[in-house]
Design a protein around this nucleic acid. Structure first.
Lengths: 345, 345
DNA sequence: TTTATTTGCGCAAACGTTGTCGGGAACGTT
DNA sequence: AACGTTCCCGACAACGTTTGCGCAAATAAA
């Protein structure tokens, strides 16, 4: 039962290794009876082709790499679940790599992926990555690449993203419709595509509702656990002070929630709060958190589908499109009394 | 720059492939000057040994597999971070596999790991797994294995676990010391080692404090999101009704919190609540959640260290020990007014 | 019968690497 | 001068597969 090889089958049946190989691949030049014998023997010995040898041969390795900033993150782990599901269904293995948000690890991970002869790469850029030449080079060497979530415009690949603009627009519009006028926007690193799109959606909703876009209400950064408090103080010191916070991430929303509660600022009476993405505990918080939900699993599924198409059909000719997956707004207590859902295009 | 091989270096320098191989491995039978030339050329061509070819050769693949129930889980992703850190530092790659809590995927994952020629396996059993013959067989074929977190006694390998008994004891003892007498215990699948140990700790603390162990206060199961509510109703209907809940997982604690809040049962006035493990948002909940914290990263680091020792030193002779990593109790609002920390042995 | 064609299968090369063996050159020893 | 060493290095096999080529036997066409 120790890792049967073609050779074992060949020896058992007194035929050559090549015949066994061809029989298993159902080649036309092998006798039906021989095929039957080989199949039967292979089943009996629990034969499984050795993927390592296959990779070495240079053909496909039936494995893809997914490179994400971190897996200790509900959004990414959900995306990976979607990726695995589709990939496994289509006969591929998934190798998971974490960049821990550093450029250095991203490069190292990609090198690893190449070394392990993956057939393609699915990547969500680290927040440190601004230069994408490492990926461009990879692509020029013929590696199929699909970007998702954190994408770069420099890189000419298919992209699968959530509708960040639409989600931010919907959230901001909701806040305005419920009477808010001074809406602060706390967001992440400014050079990320998702940041820009969310900011644009926020801004568009303001302008469409005839409200001014005030730069002093927008803050960028990778706020550590202790940095949100001071930031909230700073914003609340403005005149007129903000009556709503729209944050571009889980962590920021949680930080705000904690900071506001600590400062005894009533949510949503004094300040409304809306987050972005789909923290599992959002509805168990107090107050429960209104959020723009990103369909992480669906994004993963869509991205991996594109990648596998690229690998299998070699559709390099097809223009790299950007696929936008709709987001959903979930209204909870932090932005209003009523609890309900509405879909957003 | 396209994946340089030994052959490329050999051609460039007009020497044989074997000489190049030996020069790079600093063999004593290669002239110093030749070595220098080879090294220089290898650096220039960005040569990296092909791990696939190495694996095929049968030597070590410098990769280990880590098989966990799921990565969309703070505990496991932290453990993986610890594993990756130590493994990378010691020159190994980490292949991550998810069982999604099913036996079937666990078997498939292990097969995959073997096919990819990993040097060893780090595993936390799926909740469906009661029979461990697949792992025993693997082990008999010489695969180094270390279990962590969810371990089986049937399987004779090193084990790295949190001090589940101690943590549960401390939590229960804390509840008793703060005046609680009817402490319900909500826990997971009864056949898991962690379940049994936590239950034992709970029971020991009761008995040591002269309180009876009441089976009707202990509930096992994989409670879905909608099942916790009814369960809480059921427990609260008992007479005398419970004045504290001690749960064996994140999800259960959150579920209880939500269910109790919905039912307007005051925490901690009417019912105290203590969870197990280290949800990031625990201190942002309302009320913030007292928990027994498991040092996930440390458990991962310890486990992978044992595995690499097993791989490298072939210390098969050493008796498989169980390493217990201490847990910590973090007291927050859900179990009392005061907020503080104390260490637990 | 001789000559084509098909059918079924084996040989050998290749993927990148390591390890075993063997051999030539230069040196030192009898 | 013949022999034994030491020092460097190359040829070859092997890991498990796939694949192009060739070869024999059987069948078909002349």
């Amino acid at each position: 039962m120790e890792a049967a090889t073609l050779k074992d089958i060949a020896r058992e049946l007194n035929i050559s290794v090549s015949t066994v190989s061809r029989a298993l691949r159902d080649s036309y030049e092998i006798n039906a009876e021989t095929k039957r014998l080989v199949m039967e023997c292979a089943a009996r010995l629990h034969y499984r082709p050795n993927p390592i040898a296959l990779s070495l041969k240079g053909s496909s390795s039936k494995a893809i790499a997914v490179v994400v900033p971190q897996i200790a993150n509900y959004y990414f782990s959900q995306a990976i679940n979607g990726i695995e599901e589709v990939a496994n269904r289509r006969g591929y293995d998934v190798l998971i790599f974490q960049t821990h948000e550093t450029y250095e690890r991203e490069v190292a991970n990609l090198r690893q992926a190449v070394a392990r002869r993956v057939d393609g790469v699915l990547i969500s850029l680290s927040s440190e990555t601004s230069d994408t030449s490492h990926l461009q080079e990879l692509q020029q060497h013929g590696m199929p690449i699909v970007q998702f979530d954190r994408v770069s415009g420099e890189l000419n690949t298919p992209r699968v993203v959530a509708d960040n603009f639409g989600g931010a627009f919907a959230a901001t519009d909701h806040l305005i419709k419920t009477g808010r006028r001074r809406i602060a926007h706390l967001t992440i690193q400014p050079w990320l595509s998702i940041t820009q799109e969310r900011l644009a959606g926020y801004r568009a909703a303001l302008e469409q509702n005839g409200l001014p876009y005030d730069e002093s209400l927008v803050r960028f950064g990778t706020f550590g656990p202790d940095e949100v408090g001071p930031l909230v103080d700073e914003l609340m010191a403005l005149t007129p002070r903000p009556d709503a916070f729209f944050t571009a991430s889980d962590r920021l929303a949680l930080g705000c929630l904690a900071a506001l509660r600590q400062r005894r600022i009533a949510i949503p009476e004094e300040v409304s709060l809306v987050g972005f993405t789909n923290l599992t505990v959002a509805d168990m918080l107090s107050p429960s958190l209104s959020t723009v939900v990103q369909p992480a699993m669906e994004i993963g599924q869509e991205a991996v589908s594109r990648l596998l198409d690229l690998i299998e059909l070699k559709h390099r000719a097809a223009p790299p499109t950007t696929i936008t997956i709709p987001t959903t707004m979930v209204l909870r207590e932090s932005s209003q009394l009523a609890v309900g859902r509405f879909e957003e295009v």
